[in-house]
């Protein structure tokens, strides 16, 4: 297994954990209340999709390199 890519995945997991974390969500919550309705679920699903996309890009590229 490629060490560099494993490390990037680890970083991605930590970043995802932070993005799903409460402190960020509180900020989103404030925005929801003042101006943008329903921002919270929108934000969560968006980050979710981004994380999946990044993970896919990482493992797929790794696969090509491995071959």
């Amino acid at each position: 297994m490629n060490n560099g890519r494993e490390r990037i995945l680890l970083v991605l997991a930590v970043l995802a954990g932070l993005a799903f974390g409460y402190p960020v969500l509180v900020v989103i919550d404030v925005l929801t209340l003042c101006c943008v309705p329903a921002l919270l679920p929108l934000y969560l699903f968006l980050v979710w999709a981004v994380v999946i996309g990044l993970a896919a890009a990482l493992v797929v590229r790794r696969g090509e390199k491995g071959r």
Binding site: E6, L9, F20, L40, W48, R62
Partner: peptide, 24 residues
């Protein structure tokens, strides 16, 4: 309770990103 159901899926998402390390 709105989005309170989501942590149950966000946790495994983080683990899934770590599949190559952990489950590998």
């Amino acid at each position: 309770a709105g989005v309170a159901f989501l942590p149950i899926y966000l946790g495994p998402t983080v683990i899934a990103v770590l599949f190559p390390l952990l489950h590998g």
